[in-house]
Nucleic acid binder design. Sequence first.
DNA 1: CGCGTTCTTGACTGCTTTCAAAGATGGTGG
DNA 2: CCACCATCTTTGAAAGCAGTCAAGAACGCG
Lengths: 246, 246
Amino acid sequence: MNVAESLATIDHPALRRIAALAPLGADERSLLHTAMTRNLRTVPARRDLAIEGRPVDQPLIVLEGWAFRSRILNDGRRLIFDFLVPGDLIGFCAHKNPLAMTTISTLNPVTVCVAPQPLDDSVGEGLAEAYAVSHALEQRYWLRQMTRLGRLTAYERVIDWALEMFERCHVGEAVWPTSLRLPITQEVLGDTLGLTSVHVNRTLKALMRDGLLQIAGGKLTLLDRERCTRIAGIQQARVSGASLYR
Amino acid sequence: MNVAESLATIDHPALRRIAALAPLGADERSLLHTAMTRNLRTVPARRDLAIEGRPVDQPLIVLEGWAFRSRILNDGRRLIFDFLVPGDLIGFCAHKNPLAMTTISTLNPVTVCVAPQPLDDSVGEGLAEAYAVSHALEQRYWLRQMTRLGRLTAYERVIDWALEMFERCHVGEAVWPTSLRLPITQEVLGDTLGLTSVHVNRTLKALMRDGLLQIAGGKLTLLDRERCTRIAGIQQARVSGASLYR
DNA sequence: CGCGTTCTTGACTGCTTTCAAAGATGGTGG
DNA sequence: CCACCATCTTTGAAAGCAGTCAAGAACGCG
C-alpha cells in the first residue's frame, strides 16, 4: 500500500467512523483497507439490502450512500427505525442462523463491502471492540428513538433527530459542520418520527421561523445548535468510558 | 441440596425461559443451577438495579420479580422501554468499560443472581448461544416497541403490548394461560405506551367493553386472544419490504 | 420543456392530553 | 376488626396537537 492510497483511505468517512470507536492497530487498519477495496457491491437506490424474516448473510460495512431500517404494517403504515450511513455495520449477529429483524432499503446508491473478521486475539481485538461499540451505539440510538416517539412533541422530535443525525455522521469528531446532506423526503422523515408528512412540513416551517434548523434542498442545516441542544434536552448516556463524545 | 429443591429449580420460570432459548447440556444446567442457588440478591420494590450512565458491573439473571428499563427527561416526562421478568438478563455488554444505557428500577422485590460465564468451548457453547438469543429477542422487542409508539393507536398499542407480555413470559411454551399477574399501575403502562394514565384508563375500559382484554386487580386477562391477535396482526411484517412505494 | 414527485397550504376532524375531583383500593396501626 | 391514609382508578369537560382530505405550487429529472 503506497502513501497516496493510505491517505485516501484514512480520509474515507467509513473508515474514519469505525476507527473512532476503538483504537486499531496497523494490521487491523490494513485488514479494513483490503476489505474496503475488494468485494465491493453497489446497490441502486430504492432497493432492499435485507428483508425482514430472511436469513442474514455476511456482515457488511456501508461505504457510500444512505439506507434505512423499516417495518411496514399490513395496512400500509410504515415506521423507519433508523438510518445507515457510511461506516455503519449490517448483519452482525452473535447467535446461530439469524434472521433479519428489519427490512433495510437504500435511499440512494449504496456501496458496501464485506466486514473483515478478526483473525485471532492479537490481530482483531481492536476490530472486535469497534464492532461491539458500533453495536452498542446502535442500541443507544434505538433507545433514543423510542424516547422521541413516546414522549417528545413533533417540534422536539425533529430537533432531537436532527442532532442525532449529526452525531451519527460525525462520531468522534471534535467539530461538527453546520450542515449535512440528507437524501430523504419529508415523507421518509414522517415515517421516522411517527408523524404525517404534512405535519413534518408544518413543523419544519415552524423550526425555520424560529431560527432553529432548516431542512431544504436535501440539506439539513443547524441554525442555532445551542438552542436546539437545550430544547432536545434529553440526557445522553455514554455507552463506554472511551471518549466518544468530547 | 435435596430432591425437592432440585425439582423446584428445574421448574423455575427463569431457568425454563433460558433453557428454551438454546439447547443446554447437563453441565450447563448445573452451572446455571449453582448460580441460581448462590450469590442471590434481593432488591426491594421501587429501587434501582442500574442507573443510566453509571458503569455496568456483573451480568445478572432475574430470578423473581419485575423491573423496568426507563429514561426520565429533564422536565419529568418518563418513557419505559421494556420490562424485565424472571429469566431476563441484565448487564451483558460485548465492549469494554460499558455504561448503563438505561435506568433499571424494580416494581416489586426482585431477586437476581450472577449470570454464569461459559467455562470454555465445550461447557458453555449452549449457554453463550442462549445469552445471544436472549439479546436478539430483546432487540426484537425494542423494534416492536418503536413500531407501537410510532405507528399504532392507543387501542392497538395496549393490545399489542399485552400480547407481547404473554410472549415474553412464556417463551418457548406451547400453551399460554389466559391471564398473567402484572405488578404495574396504569401510570406505568402509560409511560410504557407513550400515553397518559388517563387515556390508558379510557382505552382499557374500551377494550373491556369490546371483550378483548382486561387489566384489573394486578392481572392481565386475554378475553379474546383470536381477535386481539388479528388486531395486533397489523404489526406482522409484510414480505415485500420494498418499501418506498406503497 | 414536460411530467411525476415532492412540497406547501387551508379547512376541518379527531385522538389524546390536561385539569379537576370524586371514588375505589389496599396496607397499616390502633 | 375497623379507621385511616396514601395510592391508584375513574369520570367529565374543555383544549390542543396531530391527522385527514384536497388542491395548487415548486422542484427535479430525463
